[in-house]
């Protein structure tokens, strides 16, 4: 028997190694079994190593991914900054368009309020080069049918008159120019006067108001209208300081212009100043009496 085992020892050994796990499985495998001492020892030996490797590898992966992600974040950041700049520009542009739209709506409302008076919108493209010039340049000119002296207005009130013309551009003399004089009405009392420029862009002066007229501070002055002038009722400014001397026919006052000239983008040019209102049906005899 011993010799037989010795002769087939390899076969027996292999068969035993095959049978043993099968037997173990048959006995213990079908239901959970506690690990034996050897199992636990091997797991105690390998698990920390596995844990360490996983930890180290995880840390390396984290560092690597952190680096890669940081690089990605950098590029992403750059891209986002570009996007923000682009979108901010778009927002600004949209905001600008909205403001322009509002201004144009106001101009349109003003145009409607003027009734049959023909007007033309014009874009302000520049201001006078000299600080003493008190003028604006608009992108309308002879080509558009503008004439010298044509009134220029905005939604806030009177801007000035066309002073000089080129084909596509015109210079507007502001009401604050010392050369400007516009016939005015006190909106409250209907007293007449003249608003002249002072050379100071923030104020005008009121002249030729009768001493007997009641003028109060904060009275609003509007255009008096008349042939070849501004349409009637456009806001000129507000009275601030009244100067009434103890002598003379007239009183004076300072006037704050209704328009902030530094914030003008669009204006309306009145193309045909209102015609003088001629009394209709004058008596024929009276007409003939007027003849030389």
């Amino acid at each position: 028997m011993r010799a037989l085992l010795q002769r087939y020892r390899e076969l027996v050994f292999v068969a035993a190694l095959l049978a043993a796990p099968l037997a173990v499985y048959m006995v213990r495998g079908r239901k959970p079994a506690r690990l034996n001492l050897l199992d636990r020892a091997i797991i105690q030996l390998t698990a920390p190593v596995e844990r360490m490797i996983v930890g180290v590898a995880g840390a390396m992966v984290d560092v690597f991914q952190g680096y890669v992600w940081l690089r990605k974040v950098r590029f992403e950041n750059l891209e986002l900054r570009r996007t923000v700049v682009r979108q901010r520009s778009e927002v600004d542009s949209a905001h600008e368009i909205r403001l322009e739209n509002e201004r144009l709506r106001k101009l349109l409302a003003l145009r409607d309020s003027l009734g049959p008076v023909p007007t033309m919108p014009a874009q302000v493209v520049a201001v006078g080069a000299s600080p003493l010039s008190h003028s604006l340049r608009i992108a309308r000119g002879l080509r558009d049918g503008l004439v010298r002296g044509a009134p220029v207005i905005s939604a806030e009130g009177v801007v000035g008159t066309i002073a000089q013309l080129a084909d596509g551009y015109a210079d507007v003399q502001l009401v604050t120019s010392p050369f400007s004089a516009i016939s005015a009405l006190n909106q409250r009392t209907r007293g007449r006067s003249t608003v002249k420029g002072t050379g100071d862009v923030t104020r005008c002066k009121l002249e030729y108001a009768l001493r007997t007229d009641e003028i109060l501070e904060s009275d609003v002055l509007v255009t008096a209208g008349g042939a070849g002038h501004f349409p009637k009722g456009l806001r000129l400014g507000r009275v601030t300081e009244i100067v009434k001397k103890p002598y003379g026919l007239f009183q004076q006052a300072r006037v704050i212009p209704a328009v902030d000239f530094s914030r003008l983008d669009e204006v309306l040019v009145v193309l045909a100043p209102p015609e003088p209102q001629i009394p209709q049906a004058l008596p024929r005899a009276a007409v003939e009496r007027g003849k030389p």
């Binding site: 190694l17 095959l18 796990p21 037997a23 173990v24 499985y25 048959m26 213990r28 495998g29």
Partner: peptide, 10 residues
């Protein structure tokens, strides 16, 4: 289950 992988290896 205990034994299966050993058996498989064998």
């Amino acid at each position: 289950p205990t034994g299966l992988y050993t058996l498989l290896a064998m």
